Computed example of a mutant assay.
Amino acid sequence: MTTSTPNKEQVLEEAAYWFACLQSEDVSAQEKQAWQTWHNQSSLHQEVWQQVERVDRQYQNLPKQHSYHVLHQTGRSRRQFLLGMMGLAVAAPIVWQQRQDIQATWLSGETETTQVGEVRQISLKDGTQLWLNTDSLVTIDQQVHLQQFHLLRGELFVESASGAIPLQLATGFGQVSAIGANFSVRLNEDHTYLAVHQGSVTVTADSGSHTKVQAKQSVLFNRTNLSPLQGLSANDEAWRRGYLVADNMRLDEFIELLNRYHPNGWLKCSANASHYRLVGHYSLADTEKVLDAIAFSLPVNVRKITPWFTILEDNKNISHS
């Protein structure tokens, strides 16, 4: 039997789990022993754990109100949490969001934002409707003959009015141009995702590469490349109606998606439960109720290790009648 060598990101994820576990008031002796076993398995485990302890010491030295904000914000993305665990900056999420907020002040137009879990609908001057998804930031410059958007964080959906004026939307990777189209744009860490629901949209990467995306098509693009995809996902639009769709979706994929809307820290699906499948529509009004529904329909246990860290684990001993 052969085992693969874990990469540092995987070990960081494991360390994050053990750190949260050991902070729990009801941590058991067996869990402490399991952590010690993990810690002693390799020098990489020990190196990463030292980084975790260093970050924790930095966190303990923060003023109370700042430390709470760090914990809240580290729940916003797995990458940001791991950055903190690597010791790059305990306040990396705060610094990153502050940078985006500062960028918004440099741009013309009005700034619109949403909090984690919030979805907002905005009416523009020409009648076009704009929805901002959870944890999003966009600037909107409504000129007489052109609407200019700059998406700095998150996701939006545009439903153009009849006779709408041209629209240009910039992200960190390129520009989207449309007239009278309905489309959604999501800004990720290393690319932008565009889904066209009606009409057509032109995408131009920073490199100058461009393509026209027709209705019912989608594309990923970064600064240099454009990658067409097959069709659309139901969740490209469902969020603006207040729910997520799971169509035989793996549990780990669904939890990763739900985590974006969860205001109470970080959600994680353990590897031993990731293979379970979900079907249904799940309201975004209360993510805790979604977790309860999952625990009722699947043999999983929703375990809140700390107020800001919840993990879903396989629990085949649960009986569902």
Rank of each mutant, 00 (worst) to 15 (best):
V290K: 01
V116A: 05
Q10E: 14
R79P: 00
T5E: 14
R240L: 06
E118N: 03
W49I: 09
T310Y: 02
A34M: 02
N248P: 00
L278A: 11
L82D: 14
Q214H: 12
S321C: 00
E110G: 00
W239M: 05
V158N: 06
V302D: 04
T134K: 08
T2F: 03
H45R: 09
Q41T: 08
F149Y: 13
T128E: 07
V219E: 10
D286R: 07
A238D: 12
A91C: 11
D101R: 13
N248K: 08
Q50F: 00
Q97Y: 11
L22H: 13
I318S: 12
V158S: 04
Q33F: 12
H45E: 08
V213S: 03
E13Y: 00
H145R: 06
H320T: 08
I294S: 07
L267K: 02
S283H: 09
R241L: 11
D26T: 15
K289M: 02
I318K: 15
T306Q: 05
L167C: 14
F296Q: 12
A20E: 12
G231P: 12
A170F: 05
Q168S: 11
C21N: 12
V185C: 06
N315D: 15
L226S: 11
Q142G: 00
G84K: 01
E256W: 03
S321E: 10
A34N: 08
V90R: 01
D56P: 00
A295D: 07
D206I: 03
C21S: 10
L71I: 14
Q30T: 15
E13P: 00
T224Y: 09
R99N: 13
S108C: 13
Q58T: 07
W308L: 08
L107Q: 14
I102H: 14
L226A: 10
Q10T: 09
Y59N: 01
H145T: 11
F157I: 11
F157W: 15
E118A: 01
Q33P: 01
N40K: 13
P93L: 04
Q23D: 10
